[in-house]
Design a protein around this nucleic acid. Structure first.
Length: 417
RNA sequence: GGAGAGGUACCCGAGUGGCCAAAGGGAACAGACUGUAAAUCUGUCGGCGCAGCCUUCGGAGGUUCGAAUCCUCCCCUCUCCA
């Protein structure tokens, strides 16, 4: 509480608003006043559907971090209880149910991951698991105490269930909202949590929670959503051809992570700087003034800052150097480029370039490698591979390594040992 | 449980005995143009020892010289009825 007074010079609500985090709010004046006058405990839920969070979850982490920086108390709720069911919001079909063990191990890893984004000392901020209170619920009791506050008519009318009304909605999914509302009530009671935040697809679920608290506790609770981000190209934020961009460095390397951000569409840069970095608005406005090829500088800032937030300064430096050296002069550090080792004996008789590209994962198959070469997109040490019969020997290596390139952007280093 | 519709490559979706490795679109990939951006144009887009061969059209069998296409059984999805 002491920290509150010293940190609260500006109202976080305004910060969130100018950075684009506000899409819908239950009661704007009330939320703004609360965040400006007192310490607020707020929560965001994270689903343990995978063993790592991805860029799509990052907005929630950023929002919580902003709150904590302003002296408020963030709670990260890991939905290992609701995860047993699967949130139908915005989905067109039933989500694959995960096993209990899988959810538990995912929750464990996500819990560890969240530490990176804000302090979770149990005091300034912390994580909770809803399995702790959901798994042992007694159905009949629950229906009497909580279920009676929900109107099926209203739930069915909700936008989030609309799509599913046509394709089918299972009973357990239909209950998801009730459980999420119950989570909010639970956190309200045990931790004085009065604000739930989430993506706009969560609006219905959040409202269900504030309504429930009003009904059973006769006290106000608020909710807030941020917009669901799509890139200028119409893609979901954080998705690439290969799938999600993960926050776990072993699933998406810091270098790949950096590359994801530097490759964003020009039109998205400014918005992304606001969402995904802590740079002051004045700084961002300066970057926003860049035009044409200069925009790349803003992208480099974006890539560096985001990589630092998720992977730390050391990795961010390495990724930046690797990126600079790979794309037009500058640094020397190529240690962040994906690397594979290969025994020198393999090179004695010469290895087909096609085999190497496929083996290293630069292409999915040898056929694809052949096509790549025929189309003139395969390079070894920056020299174009001319024919599909080309092979490599020790003589091609420079300081015991080969730099392979597929297309313009994908590099892979081959160490010979 | 009853009646009907359907399951085709990453996604959508044509094809209903040979001309089908399977139209078309989207996504993706490469090249040109660029700024590691966008747009546009061109090409590619199952695998391989690549003028040929192998494996695909929910699964397993069968008919046939020949099947994604016909038959049998099974699995799954959707709609209506109970």
């Amino acid at each position: 509480m002491e920290g509150w007074k010293t940190l609260s010079k500006t109202n976080v609500y305004d910060t969130l608003k100018e950075r684009g985090f506000i899409k819908q709010v239950t009661d704007e004046d009330a939320v703004q006043a609360a965040l400006g006058n007192s310490q607020v405990t707020a929560y965001v839920g994270f689903d343990p559907t995978a063993d790592s969070l991805h860029v799509g979850n990052l907005l929630g982490l950023m929002a919580l971090a902003h709150l904590q920086r302003a002296g408020h108390r963030p709670i990260a709720l890991i939905g290992d209880g609701t995860g047993m069911i699967g949130d139908p919001s915005g989905k067109t079909e039933m989500r694959q149910l995960l096993t209990r063990e899988k959810i538990a191990s995912n929750a464990e890893r996500i819990n560890a991951q969240i530490n990176r984004y804000f302090t979770m000392d149990g005091h300034a901020g912390f994580a909770v698991r809803n399995a702790d209170w959901l798994l042992d619920l007694n159905l009949v009791e629950f229906l009497r105490d909580i279920g009676r506050h929900f109107s099926v008519n209203r739930m069915l009318a909700a936008e989030s269930y609309k799509v599913r009304m046509e394709t089918g909605l299972s009973f357990i999914e239909f209950n998801y909202q009730i459980l999420q509302a119950y989570d909010f009530l639970k956190l309200f009671r045990s931790h004085g949590c009065t604000l739930q935040m989430g993506g706009d697809d969560q609006w219905g679920n959040i409202i269900a929670g504030t309504d429930l608290i009003r009904r059973v506790e006769s006290q106000p609770a608020e909710g807030l959503t941020w917009p669901l981000l799509t890139t200028a190209g119409g893609q979901k934020m954080g998705k690439t051809a290969k799938g999600a961009v993960w926050l776990d460095g072993s699933k998406t390397s810091p270098y790949e992570y950096y590359q994801y951000w530097i490759n964003v569409d020009d039109r998205d840069v400014v918005a992304l700087l606001k969402y995904y970095t802590f740079l002051p608005m004045t700084e961002i406005e300066k970057l926003a003034r860049l035009e044409g090829a200069e925009i790349r500088k803003a992208k480099e800032v974006l890539a560096y800052e985001t990589t630092e937030i998720t992977h730390g300064k050391g990795e961010a430096d390495k990724a930046r150097e690797a990126s600079r050296s790979a794309f037009g002069g500058g640094g020397q550090d190529i240690s962040a480029v994906p690397t594979t080792e290969m025994a020198s004996s393999r090179f004695d008789a010469g290895v087909l370039v096609v085999d190497v590209f496929a083996e290293v994962g630069l292409t999915k198959s040898k056929g694809e490698a052949r096509r790549l070469i025929q189309q003139g997109g395969a390079y070894v040490n920056e020299k174009k591979v001319e024919t599909i019969d080309d092979s490599l020997t020790i003589a091609n290596a420079v300081e015991g390594a080969l730099m392979l390139r597929a297309g313009k952007k994908r590099y892979h280093r081959l160490m010979i040992k």
